[in-house]
Amino acid sequence: MIEPRTTKTGKTYYLVRVKSGRELAASKSFDTKRAAEAWERQQKHLIETGRPLAPKRSYTLNELVVTFLAVRAEGNPHTVDTDANNLAALPQAMLRRPLASVQAGDIRSHLLTQLRGGKAPATVARAKTTLSALFTYADEQGLLHQPHPVRTMKKIPELGAAAQRAVNPNEIPSPRRVAAALATLRQRRSDIADVFEFMSLTGVRWGEVRAIRVHWLSEVPFPQLNVERSHSDRYAEKGPKSWRGTRPVPLSPRALVIFRHYATGKAPDDYLFTNQHGGQLSVGVARKFPLGFRRHALRHYAASTWLRLGTPLHEVAEYLGDEPRTVLAVYAHVLGEGQRRDHLHRLAESESADRGHLGVTQQNPGLGR
């Protein structure tokens, strides 16, 4: 109900009182009747539906993005940066559109465009997570008056959990390719070549290798690296991305040689690998010496090598700091190689036995004579 009233000075104002049943739910005064009517309409809608009225058509997706990033600015720095980068990838044409016009098909089309542009499924899946959080925030603020675009969109098979974890066999460099890349790099910067070789032998991530301290080495009952921390560039040091915290990684003779060489003359808390000025390594230096494949592929190379040598799955998972089911999903093709190799070996043995029984020689495998 809207009641026009007059102040002692003769000015007219409008008192709005909104009831829920017989109870007064809200009241407010306005200078104009139009503003009073708009507020009354909003409050009645809120009482009836539990949600505010939809924002005006001019409220854009870009305005939502700006508000969302501002609200989350004090969160985890790495997450904040990732969300900002993912949202910056949204097309400008979509950002200019009214929020109410953005539908599930628009979001799906954007994610598919990123996949077709060559982005890894895991990267696009993270972008999907950011967009889901964006629209969930809009929903919580009463700004979303259409079905949640991410939750209701048709599934993209490539973004399934197993699909995004799987590694393309072509992304894992062969031993010959790794050796050639390291040999070429060693001619330019032998210390950086040693860092990359150590990564290929231990499977440690970039953030972990730059955080290694001299005291991480233990040699009883056998040499192993105890990965305790990770330090990504531009972010605070933290525990490693492992499912059980600190993890042991047995060191091969060559990995031990590299460790001991760089530990010589250093205190236990000193960084093992440093730049030419004695400071902590930075990704900027690493990027000056490309290998011809991603640095992270060295981790896949190490894991694949261990699996091909017959190292049990659960041991590989422990060395990587992953769960066995994750390793199984990521390196299924490597495990499949061993199974196919064993199958071919059994076939060869079977055929050899059959030829022996039939009196068929290897040179004359039998043409049905």
Rank of each mutant, 00 (worst) to 15 (best):
A93T: 14
L90T: 09
A120Q: 14
L87G: 08
A36F: 10
A133M: 14
Y137I: 06
H145D: 01
P147T: 14
L99V: 11
P157W: 00
T49C: 12
N76S: 13
V124H: 07
A161R: 14
Q164E: 15
V150Q: 05
P91Q: 08
P121T: 10
S101P: 05
A84V: 08
E40T: 15
A38Q: 11
N86R: 13
I156P: 11
R151M: 04
N62A: 13
G160V: 14
V66F: 01
A88D: 14
L90N: 05
P91L: 08
L144E: 00
A84R: 15
N62D: 12
G75N: 09
L90W: 04
P149R: 07
Q103C: 03
L61Y: 05
H78M: 10
Y59W: 13
Q42I: 01
G75S: 08
N62V: 07
L69E: 08
P55L: 06
A104F: 00
A73M: 07
A38G: 01
V124A: 05
G50Y: 03
A100I: 15
W39M: 12
I47G: 06
H145N: 02
E63K: 15
A127M: 09
A35F: 01
Q114A: 08
T130Q: 03
Q164S: 09
H45F: 12
V102Q: 00
H148A: 02
A88E: 14
A38K: 15
T129H: 04
R57V: 15
A161Y: 03
